[in-house]
């Protein structure tokens, strides 16, 4: 596409957005609000109305209705999920997003109690490094019967915040024989240990041990390259790839280590 064509395309999309915004501004929002609050109406219809209302309100208005729907535990999960998605989108584009952030977070926390919303709410709250959510996830790793999500997912969600006490959890899972048999958990734990200088020995052991999966050993190599590049020297690489794991797997690992080293150079 030429620069001229690209510019024309951008101009067209801006014009389209402006048109739809001015059309949205003319929409009477009262009937939409009525539909949303009429609980006898089908959940899908109400969710659609909520979407139209948000569009009509535009990005510079605090989305009170959506916040209320999301925070209401008696509301239909379909409507709440729609509210969650719409609010997630609006957080990016709203010029007043900072103002309704506290209410948004509080509403998302109430959504954790609803299984149909939990996963989406956890993703957002973890991304925002919400301490209460982090505490719940850690509690679930320590006491699986109370867990909101499986341990590997909890580790993934916690991994975005190094100050969330996740290193300790990852260390203990990587050392626990039972957890090591759970491949997704072990891989997530290794991924987190890539930011733990105290785990260099553990990572070296994983890299050198051909009883671990190729995925685990590749992760260990990547982690070592990040934490202690000198640990990933020629000797370690050679011993890691001269195991009984089979030529195909050894080749794959050797290639991975070679790539890491060439990027470093």
């Amino acid at each position: 596409m030429s620069t001229k064509e690209y510019r024309q395309k951008i101009a067209q999309s801006v014009a389209k957005a402006t048109r739809s915004r001015s059309t949205a501004a003319q929409i009477d929002v009262k009937p939409l609000r009525r539909i949303i609050t009429t609980k006898k109406a089908a959940a899908k219809t109400r969710a659609d109305a909520l979407g139209r209302l948000m569009r009509a309100e535009g990005p510079d208005v605090v989305p009170e209705t959506a916040l209320q729907r999301l925070a209401d535990p008696k509301e239909s999960p379909v409507v709440r999920l729609a509210a969650l998605r719409l609010l997630q989108h609006k957080q990016i584009f709203s010029s007043v997003a900072a103002e309704w952030r506290p209410a948004y977070l509080d509403a998302l926390r109430t959504a954790l109690d609803e299984p149909k919303l939990r996963s989406a709410a956890l993703e957002i709250l973890s991304g925002l490094k919400d301490r209460k959510t982090q505490a719940l996830l850690l509690e679930g790793i320590r006491q699986p019967r109370r867990a909101l999500v499986p341990a590997d997912q909890a580790l993934r969600l916690l991994s975005s915040d190094i100050h969330a006490d996740v290193l300790e959890a990852a260390r203990s899972l990587a050392n626990d024989q039972q957890s090591r048999k759970n491949k997704p958990v072990f891989l997530q734990a290794l991924r987190i240990l890539a930011s733990d200088p105290a785990s260099v020995g553990r990572l070296e052991e994983v890299l050198a041990n051909d009883s671990h999966s190729i995925d685990a050993r590749r992760l260990a190599a990547t982690a070592l390259n990040h934490l202690s590049p000198e640990s990933l020297n020629l000797r370690t690489a050679r011993s890691a790839t001269s195991t009984k794991a089979g030529p195909k797997r050894n080749d794959a690992l050797a290639k991975h280590i070679e790539t890491l080293q060439s990027v470093r150079r």
Binding site: D165, E168, R171, D196, P197
Partner: peptide, 8 residues
Amino acid sequence: FGASGIVN
């Protein structure tokens, strides 16, 4: 520092 050695 926390138990993991990271600055708290």
